[in-house]
């Protein structure tokens, strides 16, 4: 038995990187190293206020420092955005099942992200890029509202120079600086080859829904579409009930599910 369920570990905010107008990356140094598999999530706590679930965006090979990329959308995240370097957050986890990397071996891995949904996918990309020879191909398809809303601008620039990885970017609304594709993410998925491919999708619910429908339309199998689901994961360990999706709990059985696993349950996109 893992004693003292729900107890947190202190984590120092070592650095704060402003990604966009409402997204920041917090570099955390937990008191105890926190080993996680890419796709697993943690609960982050603000003292006296509350907790919320987030998926690390850093390299799963590094347990001493963990990056958490957080959009300002509610009580807990508002407080986080007001924090300064050196302050303390609480952390517990990791929870849930990560991406089944071994199942991706020898395949074309299509990583598809929208907005802040690139956070868990960046952690996945770090993991994949530990040894790209394991896969036939790794490609990233990423969409943001505007060029300013692209997260990890330096990292994305680095990826653009990476010969072994194909990168496709799009924005819903361009500005003068933008020379790339304009349109929602699904507009850059048209030419995907479903042959021997799997897709990992993460983003806002509406983006996940239409990306999944597009992938199915171009021939992806339901069991080859991996979705990182956002639900109200509160306890993190399958007890509190909030994040149930049909027969599963997002916290213990997910948050990564194949579309085949959850397609019959209503309410998955809401």
């Amino acid at each position: 038995m893992k004693s003292e369920t729900y107890k947190i570990t202190n984590a120092v905010v070592e650095d704060i990187i402003t990604e966009t107008s409402n997204i920041k990356t917090f570099v955390l140094k937990p008191d105890k190293g926190l080993e996680f598999k890419t796709g697993q999530f943690v609960e982050l706590a603000v003292k006296g206020l509350g907790e919320a679930p987030f998926t690390p965006s850093s390299d799963p090979g590094i347990s001493e420092k963990i990056d958490m990329t957080i959009m300002k959308v509610g009580l807990v995240t508002d407080a986080m955005h007001n924090m300064k370097k050196g302050e303390i957050l609480g952390i517990r986890g990791p929870y849930g099942q990560g991406y089944p990397i071994d199942d991706f071996k020898g395949k074309r891995v299509c990583v598809i992200g929208g907005g802040v949904g690139l956070a868990p996918l960046r952690s996945l990309l770090y993991e994949l890029m530990h040894d790209l020879s394991r896969f036939e191909k790794v490609s990233l398809y990423y969409g943001a509202k505007t060029p300013k809303d692209i997260v990890y601008k330096n990292y994305v620039k680095k990826l653009q120079q990476e010969k072994e990885l194909d990168l496709f970017l799009t924005v819903d609304q361009a500005d003068d600086s933008w020379t790339g594709n304009v349109g929602v993410v699904t507009t850059i998925l048209e030419d995907l080859n479903p042959e021997n491919s799997i897709a990992c999708v993460c983003g806002p619910p509406i983006m996940m829904k239409f990306s999944t429908l597009k992938l199915l339309e171009i021939g992806f199998k339901e069991e080859d579409i991996y979705l990182s689901m956002e639900k109200n994961m509160s306890c993190g360990v399958g007890k509190c009930g909030h994040c149930r999706i049909g027969n599963y709990y997002a916290c213990k059985d997910g948050p990564v599910f194949t579309y085949a696993q959850i397609k019959n349950f209503d309410e998955i996109w809401d």
Binding site: V46, G48, G50, G90, C235, K239, G241, H242
Partner: peptide, 18 residues
Amino acid sequence: CFFLITKENSFDKLRSWD
């Protein structure tokens, strides 16, 4: 079902039925 409440000025918790 329950929810977790973070106590004032701390990371400690209360649990309440939801």
